[in-house]
């Protein structure tokens, strides 16, 4: 009973807090550019507005056009539930849960990419193709990062893996995971969430035809995924799980905030990469994670 209550509370926390992150990123970008920018809560307003609207659906689309985003959203929320939250630990944890997390993200990708192909639009096909192709490299980096945490902690359960964090390889792992975060969440320099030129986009190109509640679900899912990666990155670098409760919670929040601000700063200072350079950057991320693994290997047991 208490476990069920905790699951619901955590889920609510994830779902309610997630839309803050894009707001913070946009605020940071506005500050750097000297603008006032949209309110931090803008995404909440957008989601509420979208949810009230009715839907215009392509004549070609099947029910999968709507089911895809719904399943993707459930998968992302499920992946988020698996993550331990600093000193509070994980609410569900078992050997190998980290692999379930990675593959739940893959399930989410399947859902959104499927939905994108429903309309027969070349732009959405393009976005979908880019998404699934670059994900190959991102997944290699992510699995390497997870392996380095596993080797360092001698465990394949998320909670025990993340409690000691990455140890001496933390800086390398932070670089690698941050790059993966940018790629997986379609931020600059991989993708530009602001542009409306369909030819140059990944994520935005996939959702061109979505409107109303399905679009709200996609946007909210994307926000939860960003928060998930921010928490994962923070916990992989800082041993928040091993800290006393108050300090740990503070460190986790500060870490997530720092990552979010970092995304905003990167987005303000960098331009989007040419697509042919994307694999190079992702390979760099993979190599960073691989070196982190090497450090964990030679660093001795945690």
């Amino acid at each position: 009973m208490i476990a069920a209550l905790e699951i619901i509370l955590r889920l609510a926390g994830w779902l309610v807090l997630a839309p803050l992150l894009p707001g913070i990123i946009n605020k940071v970008k506005a500050w750097v550019a000297g603008r006032r920018g949209p309110p931090v809560l803008q995404l909440y307003f957008d989601l509420a507005r979208l949810w009230r609207k009715s839907v215009v659906l392509s004549t070609l689309a099947s029910p999968g056009f709507v089911a895809g985003p719904a399943i993707a959203w459930v998968a992302i929320a499920g992946a988020a539930l698996l993550l331990p939250l600093g000193p509070a630990g994980a609410v569900v944890g078992f050997r190998g849960d980290v692999l379930l997390l990675i593959y739940l993200l893959a399930l989410a990708r399947f859902g959104t990419a499927w939905a994108a192909l429903e309309t027969g639009s070349a732009f959405e096909g393009m976005g979908s193709a880019r998404e699934v192709s670059y994900a190959v490299l991102a997944e290699a980096a992510l699995i390497t990062a997870v392996l380095s945490l596993s080797v360092h902690s001698g465990s394949i359960t998320l909670e025990t893996m993340l409690t000691p964090a990455a140890g001496p390889g933390a800086v390398l792992l932070a670089g690698g995971l941050f790059t993966v975060l940018l790629a997986e969440n379609c931020r600059v320099p991989f993708d530009d969430p602001n542009t409306h030129l369909e030819l140059t986009m990944i994520h935005e190109a996939m959702i061109l035809d979505h409107s109303g509640p399905p679009l709200a679900v996609i946007l909210h899912g994307a926000a939860v995924k960003l928060l998930l990666f921010a928490v994962l990155l923070t916990e992989a670098v800082l041993p928040v799980g091993a800290m006393p409760p108050l300090a740990g919670t503070g460190a986790l929040l500060a870490g997530v905030l720092a990552v979010t601000v970092g995304v905003g700063v990167v987005e303000s200072l960098l331009a989007r990469l040419a697509f042919r350079r994307v694999p190079l950057l992702l390979t760099t991320a993979f190599l960073l994670c691989l070196f982190a693994l090497l450090v964990a290997w030679k660093g001795g047991p945690a």
């Binding site: 839907v55 215009v56 659906l57 004549t59 029910p63 709507v66 089911a67 719904a70 035809d209 679900v217």
Partner: peptide, 15 residues
Amino acid sequence: LWQRTRRGLQRAVTW
């Protein structure tokens, strides 16, 4: 979500 989408649904050519 499909039930919610079907309320007031319009069909149009792909954007």
